[in-house]
Computed example of a mutant assay.
Amino acid sequence: MISLNKADKKSYLDVKQELVRLYLSAFTEGISAQKITTDEAETYLDKLFSDGYGIFAFSDDQLIAALISIPLTSDNERPENIRTLYDTAAAEYIAEVLVDKNFREMGLGKKLMRAFEDHLDKKRKHVLLRVWNQNEAAVALYQKAGFKVCGHIVQEKIRPLTNDKFVMHKNYMVKIY
């Protein structure tokens, strides 16, 4: 049975190593593989939970999925049009949606999004997120959830094995409440 729980900083610290594993698995393997060290992942996740919260999914006490949300002001890479269009006091930013590869295609992303919306502060008028434009499954999930493209950035990354640089085109998407 899968359970979903809202997670604060204490909840995060209880499963930190599992979340680091989940994060590294999502971003250092497969077609979008990037060079990310364990220390970098820990520092990044610590920062997210200093400002935000998560929705964690567990199966038999094992962390299998997570959605992490932070204030929009914490996203320092957002383009100028995002900065001017969306009032940060009324906006939330989904920084990560992570699903263990053994639990994909089971509707966990959709369940995380629903649970997130159940916990969303009613003062929020916009929720934004950023997604690699080639991640078809994630793009489809977000579109079905009511998100629409509202901006774009380009990020330079490094391949883990070859150290070659590559570019990722990422779309910002917004859902209006």
Score class of each variant (00 low, 15 high):
Gln34Ile: 00
Asp14Ile: 02
Pro160Leu: 11
Phe58Ile: 04
Arg114Met: 12
His152Pro: 02
Leu128Trp: 04
Thr84Leu: 09
Leu19Asp: 13
Lys125Ser: 11
Val139Gly: 14
Ser3Leu: 04
Ala7Glu: 13
Ala66Phe: 12
Phe56Thr: 01
Phe49Gly: 04
Glu117Lys: 00
Asn171Gln: 05
Ile68Thr: 06
Ala91Met: 11
Arg130Trp: 00
Ala95Met: 01
Glu77Ser: 03
Gly54Trp: 08
Leu63Arg: 06
Leu19His: 02
Glu92Gln: 09
Leu120Thr: 00
Ser32Tyr: 14
Gly30Val: 06
Gly52Ala: 05
Gln134Tyr: 14
Ile94Val: 15
Lys170Arg: 01
Asp164Arg: 15
Leu67Ala: 05
Asp118Pro: 02
Gly52Thr: 09
His126Leu: 03
Leu161Ser: 13
Glu42Asp: 03
Tyr44Thr: 07
Asp121Gly: 11
Glu29Thr: 15
Val149Asn: 11
Val139Gln: 14
Asp39Val: 04
Ala91Ile: 09
Asn5Arg: 01
Gln17His: 06
Ser59Ile: 05
Lys125Thr: 13
Lys144His: 14
Glu18Pro: 00
Lys10Val: 07
Ser69Val: 04
Leu4Lys: 09
Leu67Trp: 04
Asp75Asn: 07
Ser11Lys: 02
Ile31Pro: 00
Leu128Cys: 05
Val20Thr: 12
Ile31Asn: 09
Tyr93His: 13
Gln134Glu: 15
Lys101His: 13
Ser32Trp: 05
Asn5Asp: 08
Tyr12Phe: 13
Thr88Met: 07
Leu22Met: 07
Lys9Arg: 14
Lys123Gln: 12
Met1Arg: 12
Asn163Phe: 14
Asn102Glu: 08
Gln17Lys: 10
Ala115Cys: 10
Tyr93Glu: 09
Leu128His: 06
